[in-house]
Simulated assay, not measured.
Amino acid sequence: MSMLGLFMQADWVVKAVMIALALASIICWAIIVEKSLLLGRLKREIRGLLAAAAPGAGQGLPSPQGEGLAARVLRAGTREWRDGREQGESRFEYRHRMEHAMRHALSGELRRVEPGLPFLATTGAVAPFIGLFGTVWGIMNSFAGIAQSNDTSLAVVAPGIAEALFATAIGLIAAIPAVMAYNRLLVRLGRLRADGQSAAADLAASLSRRPPSLAAASASRSAAAE
């Protein structure tokens, strides 16, 4: 009646169900660990963006280095800043252009978290039913064995029903962490997206108040020389 014994005595269909659910559980835990580490790193990056956007963070142009989220978002915004305001472009439109560029870079980085999340949702929704299928199949085999042996004693019935119910237990073991992790990761991702968009808006507003870009200043000096 051990777990290994229940697995070894199960019908081949029930064994296949147990193996599939066990593999799904392992994959889910791998996704949970990987996404948790990734979200932790992105949280630190977005904190850097919020610090750069905070009042009094410095009047100089940010100098993004590296390939992280904060660096990519800052590069997207400062690229538009250096282009300067176009002729006839209002300050609001200029700020919106920088903010749009930073939000686009932010969305691209956050989309890297999304692969794997649908698997968690699918496992959480489907695993209990797969386990239930294994249970129903196992109980059907148990009743068939009872009919053949003409013995309804508990010693005959219990092993088959136990191994059948074991499939449902594995389905729940796979589904419950998957559902909890999926909801938790979605909440964390939503908070990071909101914080990142807020930082992008503040950075765009800050950059739009700063002096013209080097390109615009160079064009002004050339025009004055002529």
Rank of each mutant, 00 (worst) to 15 (best):
R47K: 13
R210A: 05
L117F: 03
M3F: 14
E93M: 14
A199G: 02
S218H: 13
D11M: 11
F133E: 00
A162G: 11
E226I: 15
G108V: 06
T122E: 05
P118T: 12
V157S: 02
R221Y: 14
L6V: 07
R41D: 12
E34Y: 10
T122K: 03
V14I: 10
L165N: 03
T123I: 04
D195R: 02
T78V: 02
S198K: 11
M3N: 09
Q87L: 14
M102V: 07
A76C: 05
A199I: 08
T78R: 03
R103L: 13
R82V: 14
C28F: 08
M3V: 14
L185P: 07
G84M: 06
K35P: 04
Q148D: 15
S218Y: 14
G77S: 06
E45W: 00
Q148V: 11
S149C: 12
Q65D: 03
A70H: 01
M140N: 08
L74W: 04
V157C: 02
I170L: 06
H104F: 09
K15S: 09
S198H: 15
S213E: 07
A125T: 12
Q197G: 13
R82Q: 13
V33Y: 09
V113P: 00
Q9L: 13
S107K: 15
E45Y: 00
R193E: 08
Q87P: 12
D195M: 09
I146T: 06
D151T: 11
P159Q: 08
S218W: 15
L61H: 04
A225E: 08
L38D: 10
I130E: 00
S213V: 06
G60R: 07
L132N: 00
Q148R: 15
R47Y: 05
R209H: 07
P62Q: 05
G84S: 01
E45H: 07
L117D: 03
L207G: 03
L203F: 09
L50Y: 06
G108H: 08
V187S: 13
M1D: 15
L132C: 02
I26H: 05
C28W: 12
G131N: 07
M102Y: 05
T152K: 03
T122Y: 03
I146L: 10
A155G: 12
E93N: 10
G40L: 11
V136Q: 00
A216W: 11
I139E: 03
A178R: 01
G134W: 02
E34A: 10
G68Q: 09
G68M: 01
G145L: 14
M3R: 10
A194P: 10
R95S: 12
G116C: 13
A53F: 11
H96A: 15
A205K: 05
I130W: 02
A223V: 11
V156S: 12
L203K: 04
A174Y: 01
V157A: 02
A127S: 00
V179R: 03
